[in-house]
Every structure is written in structure tokens, then in C-alpha cells.
Simulated assay, not measured.
Amino acid sequence: MFNTKKIILSRKIILMGILLVFLLILTACGNNGEEMPQAKENAFLMDTLVQMRAHGENAEIAVEESMERIREIEKLMSKTIETSDIYKLNNNSKTEIEIDNESIIVLEKALKYAKLTDGDFDPTIGALVELWGIGTEDAAVPEQAEIETALANTGYNHLDLADNSAEITKEGVKIDLGGIVKGYAAEEVKKIVQKYNIEHAFVNLGGNVLVIGDKVDGSPWKIGIQDPRQGRGNVMAVVDAVDLTIVTSGNYERYFEENGKLYHHILDPKTGYPADNNLLSVSIISENSFDADALSTAIYVMGLEKGMKFIENMENVYAMFITEELDVYLSSGLKEIVTIKDSDFNIIEGEEIAN
């Protein structure tokens, strides 16, 4: 169960169809009615819109330092910035490359979840991502032979890590940290916020939402889960949260249609195609964005039954699945903290299917 002292139960800016909506009712006054300094900033970083807001005596410097920290991480781990560690690895296969310790940390976590999920999350999916081109002007369904070639160049066993270096051991394999690096950045922002003793803050990295503390009036932050059938701003569920992260992966965050069929960006590393498992979205709710980021992708790829079993065996990690039939399956402990706002959705306690 959740620690109710940290999470009071019951917005996401949507870019390119991102699923999570952050609903904010903000005030500049604290519990005692006194004015509280606040700072906010929006920036396009990590190929998405990043929002941050903080309240407190050190709010301005905390926000400035946090946004700069995200820029630093992007420069290290972007697959398109030529000076980044990931670009160097992807373009120098079969060569041991010295990389920053931070890149090692993220790659180690990515390999951890690749192993835990038996490859349902895989940081070496770059060849498939480039082939499909979803989210770009070149998006199209590849030929089967092309998919098979990209699949042959996918596999976390082709990535070797050492204390301060990494190596892609097979030519053609490429790393893509899009499914985990925003979570790492969110946790780094949390450290900065805590360093400056900020008790009320949120950061939204393109759908990876982290709230620190409660709102300045003492009420919980409200995090809305978007109705996956509709456009931005349409919420089907709300979670009231303190010190919580929510990361959602869905089948129309980024997608294209060809011959009447929708192809979304969450690729199954084992088939080479977008995951096809009757799910509209999966939301991971936990206290750590680094883990939740990887898990949201992996659990979506797993599908409902396998994904629910996986989550039920984890501590302090929870999941909400929305199926094409508009059934909402909640892992143990979530029913009492998630409020469904649309009667079209049917809420189901999901631990039964995990047994």
C-alpha cells in the first residue's frame, strides 16, 4: 500500500499526442496565507516540452539549475548530438569508448531492466526506431526483410559496460535511451530541489511527471490521466499525489496511419513491430521516475496479463492499464487512490489476473 503520509489519495502538457495531462490549481500563498516566492520555466529539451515550477525562498535558482541540469544530460545522452556519449557509441561499434560516469549509470539501469523484463525493454532498439521513423516525416511501414535486418541488430547482449567505458560489440546495433533518460533527468531535478529545501515543486518532462511535496496550500497535486480516445485536456482519471511520479506510455503518443491501420511508436524488440496487445495505455505510479520511465515502456510491451504479474511482484510500484474495451485494470493498492472521472470506463481490480 502507499504511504499515506507521502501520497494523499483520491497535467500534462501534451506534445505530439503525449497521454498524460497535468491538472494544476496553483496558488502563491502558503497555508498561513503569506506570499511564497515562485519560479517557473518552459523549454524544449530532450526532444520534448519540459515544464517546471517551484515555490519557496530558493525557487528561482532551483529552477534555473534544474533546467541547466537537464541540458547537460541531453548533451551527454542524445543519440543525435555528435559530441554525446551515445552518438559516439552508435558510430564506433566494436570499439571501447570512454564515456561519462552518468552515461554508465543510465546504461546500467537500462541493462538491468532489459534483463528483468527479458528484453521487453531494450536500450539497443535504435535500429528499429530509425527504420520505422515514427514521429518523423519519413514514417512508413518497412518491408519485412528490413525489419528482420533491424531485429538482427537489436539485443542488449551486444552492449558491454566497464567502469568508465562501453562498447557495442556488433556492427549495426544502436542505442536509444528515449525510454529511460527522462526518468533519470527527473530524479536529478529532485536532488536539486531537495538541495535548495524546496518543499513544493513539479517537473513535467514530456509526460514524465514528478511532484515534490504538496502544493503551497497544503493540498495534493492533481495528476490527470488523459482519455486515450480524445485530444489533449480530456481527462478520464485523476490521482491526488504528494512526492509521486506518474509515467504513461500509450499507443498514440506518436503514430502514423497507413492503409487504415495505426502504427504507434512503442516497438516490441522481439517482433520489430509496434506492440499489439489490446492496450491503449499503461501508467506507472511510483516514487522513482528513473525506474518508472523504463517500466512504462516494458509493461506496455508485455501486455495486460504478463505486465500485471510483473508489477504485482514489485514493491512500491503500481500500474494502471487501459484496454481497447475501456476497461481500467488497477494493480493492488490503486483502487482507493485513483478516481475515474468518465463513466465510459469500467474499473477492475487487476490482481486477480496476476494469480
Rank of each mutant, 00 (worst) to 15 (best):
E148S: 03
D138G: 08
K195G: 11
I168E: 02
I97C: 08
F22V: 03
K190H: 11
L111S: 12
G207Q: 06
G224M: 00
I25C: 14
E315Y: 13
G172N: 07
V338G: 07
D344L: 13
E108K: 01
D160E: 12
S66T: 04
H264C: 04
S332H: 15
F44D: 15
D344Y: 14
E146G: 00
D291P: 09
I340E: 02
E257P: 01
E41P: 04
L161V: 12
G178R: 00
L267W: 00
E187Y: 13
T248M: 13
M67K: 15
W221F: 10
I147F: 03
I147M: 06
L262Y: 10
N278D: 06
N288Q: 08
V301I: 06
N101M: 09
G207L: 04
N101K: 11
T248A: 15
K261H: 14
L330D: 12
E352S: 14
K270M: 03
A28G: 15
E312F: 06
M46I: 08
K341P: 04
I340H: 02
D344E: 15
E96T: 11
N277E: 09
I73C: 04
A201I: 02
G350L: 00
L279P: 08
V242H: 02
G17H: 03
E35H: 12
D243F: 02
I18P: 05
V141M: 04
A140P: 03
G172W: 01
K306T: 14
N153E: 14
L128D: 01
N259F: 05
D118G: 12
N259K: 08
N346Y: 07
I25R: 11
N91Q: 09
V63L: 15
F345P: 09
N157P: 11
I180Q: 04
G133M: 06
T169F: 05
Y329K: 03
A59C: 08
I175R: 00
R69W: 07
E253M: 07
I73M: 03
L244P: 01
K222T: 11
V216A: 13
P228R: 00
I13A: 09
T136R: 11
E258A: 10
G206L: 00
I99R: 05
D217Y: 11
R71N: 12
S332K: 13
R229L: 07
N259M: 05
L26A: 10
V235E: 13
M314Q: 01
A43V: 08
W132T: 02
T297G: 13
K40Y: 11
I134W: 01
V338W: 01
I353L: 13
I61P: 04
K40S: 13
L279N: 10
I353N: 12
K195Q: 10
D342Y: 01
S343T: 07
N32M: 07
E65G: 09
E167P: 00
N355F: 12
S165V: 10
Y263F: 11
I175F: 01
N259R: 05
E352Q: 14
R69M: 10
V21D: 10
